[in-house]
Design a binder for these strands. Structure first.
Lengths: 138, 138
DNA sequence: ACAAGAGTTTACGTTAACGTAAACGTAAGG
DNA sequence: CCTTACGTTTACGTTAACGTAAACTCTTGT
């Protein structure tokens, strides 16, 4: 067997590469690290990000798009590995998963109604536009 | 004709009624007013909220659930009445509607993937739970 | 050798969205 | 009349999530 095909995922990223890719500042990335959401390795004192860390960053940003705080995003990310073998913790994890699901369902309903109302708003705006144009050209 | 049936929507609300109904503080409601999101009438110096104002409050809170800032919520609420007759403004309104729609679609995608991942996380957690129980009772 | 560019730490500044508290007015009930 | 509940304004405090700036190190190209 030879290599893994031609898609050679770069196995590491610099902080500015990630900043560019996701259109955020390096300051923000370091901030997430301070808050314990990222733990890049170091080559000397320079931060080196693995593909896994990059995924964590993506999850953080997705959380932000959904209006989650960093703490909430951390909670969600932590749900990904049940390395917390302990029974009690697993129980609580399942509860938190259920809670998040309920929250997401509420968001879904909110989005649906908002979408519907945007449709109506658009219709009204279009109508108002047509009308005001007729008034311009009698 | 007599009355409008038996469902007599109270035509006005006090600030604490609304606070109770939506489980927020009166401080928050006054804050929204300061920010120009609500404009209740006054009976003397006391605030009196119409059903319309109550709806606006609901919209604000829905916006919050979707991670919108108060400014963003105000924008959305303003989309509801195209009283801004002017053509140019209507054009911009339509653009903003399109933008919000795109944003909501992104949120939908985010929610869907997160839901899927929660499913997987739940499966893993359940598995880990079963396993750790077997270890307890050999 | 040195300037430029990317990285680092440390620290103070800022904005949004309220919380908290003080100090006071008004209306109803005992 | 006094308390209690509800309301008001004004103002300072707080938290999250970075921005901004200073001061320094390391690497690299010319």
């Amino acid at each position: 067997m030879k290599a893994k095909a031609s898609i050679v995922e770069p196995h590491s990223y610099s902080i500015s590469e990630l900043a560019r890719e996701f259109d955020i500042t390096t300051r923000a990335i370091r901030f997430y690290e301070d808050k314990g959401l990222l733990k890049p390795e170091r080559r000397g004192q320079t931060r080196v990000y693995s593909p896994e860390e990059r995924v964590r960053l993506k999850l953080i940003l997705r959380g932000k798009r959904l209006g989650f705080s960093l703490d909430e995003s951390r909670e969600i990310i932590d749900m990904y590995d049940p390395a917390h073998g302990n029974v009690e913790q697993l129980q609580r994890l399942l509860e938190r998963i259920a809670q998040k699901r309920a929250l997401l369902q509420q968001q879904l309903r909110d989005i649906e109604s908002l979408m519907g109302e945007l449709d109506e708003a658009e219709v009204r705006a279009q109508a108002a536009l047509v009308k005001s144009r007729r008034e311009d050209n009698p």
